[in-house]
């Protein structure tokens, strides 16, 4: 294509494609584009040189800046995952993830929104700690969501007392429910504390000399259910019983309360006689934490009227 024929759209597509192309191991721009063309040629099609820099070198500045920015953002959102898989491996993982899932949002806040699913499907990027890394990714992404997801008006104890089996409820968007394979909540919190100690006034410092994964005590695989949620602007983690987790998931999926409780106690070892007490205790806690709200403003009224 000749230089003169490149319009604004073509220039932007060509530049975006070059800028988002992964760097070499030495953090240089690659010599060839994915279609095999020499990048010196690609750059010269739309970038002008100056007396010190070739078109390739000028484009390379933006290529590096892009990767430094997005890799830094992911490292900031997933410090515990980074510590557990090791800094180098985390960077390789991030590059592969971002190549498949570049940012589709105006805000970097959403950059890691697909990392859990991606990492589950790509175990080779996390090595022998894959299952733990997936759990920790779940926890750290839940933190991002619990931190600033919306909060609706919660149901009061009086409103909760009016609920029946047909009531449809909603869980606060900031409550993030997780089913884990390890006590990854404890590991994550302990690594976050370590990060905080290393933090400078200007933000989180990553010691890039520490490429190796962090040492961990031997962890036993066991099913665990955790909710990340926000109270007074801070994010907390709360462990749940399996039945409580399943009930909350069912409520969130839109089941009426009776069906949600049935789903929660399916295959449960809790005897039938003990279940009403459990449900009562859950609702007490949920009311205290403001976890339960209505799916839409009119629904509770309908439920109360019904």
């Amino acid at each position: 294509m000749s230089q003169a024929s490149m319009g604004l759209e073509e220039i932007q597509r060509a530049m975006a494609s070059a800028v988002m192309m992964p760097l070499t191991a030495d953090e240089d721009m690659r010599q060839h584009a994915p279609d095999g063309r020499a990048m010196t040629h690609v750059a010269a099609e739309f970038i002008a040189p100056n007396s010190r820099l070739t078109p390739f070198e000028r484009l390379e500045i933006y290529n590096r800046q892009y990767w430094y920015r997005v890799l830094g953002a992911l490292a900031e959102d997933f410090p515990a995952v980074r510590a557990v898989v090791g800094a180098k491996k985390f960077e390789a993982l991030s590059v592969a993830y971002l190549a498949q899932h570049p940012s589709r949002s105006f805000t970097l806040r959403n950059l890691g929104s697909k990392l859990v699913e991606w990492l589950e499907a790509h175990p080779q990027f996390a090595g022998r700690r894959h299952a733990l890394a997936v759990d920790m990714t779940r926890i750290e992404w839940a933190f991002v969501e619990a931190f600033d997801n919306p909060e609706h008006e919660p149901l009061t104890l009086e409103q909760i007392a009016t609920l029946d089996a047909d009531s449809r409820l909603a869980i606060q968007p900031h409550v993030r429910l997780m089913a884990l394979n390890y006590a990854a909540d404890e590991v994550t919190l302990s690594l976050h504390s370590r990060e905080k100690r290393q933090a400078s006034e200007a933000g989180v410092k990553h010691d890039d000399g520490e490429d190796a994964p962090v040492r961990l005590p031997r962890l036993r695989r066991r099913a665990l259910w955790v909710a990340a949620h926000r109270v007074d602007l801070s994010v907390y983690y709360r462990r749940l019983e399996r039945e409580e987790y399943l009930t909350l998931e069912a409520i969130r999926a839109g089941m009426p309360l009776g069906a949600a409780l049935e789903a929660g106690f399916r295959d449960s070892r809790i005897p039938a006689s003990g279940r009403p007490g459990r449900v009562s205790a859950w609702f007490g806690t949920w009311a205290e934490l403001g976890w339960i709200c209505t799916p839409d403003p009119g629904s509770l009224v309908r439920s109360q009227e019904g």
């Binding site: 932007q12 597509r13 800028v19 988002m20 570049p102 589709r104």
Partner: peptide
């Protein structure tokens, strides 16, 4: 400046021709 194409964001302030 510009910085996105077809809903994919570079999160950079890229210069315009």
């Amino acid at each position: 400046c510009w910085g996105s194409v077809d809903g994919t964001y570079t999160h950079d302030l890229l210069p315009l021709p």
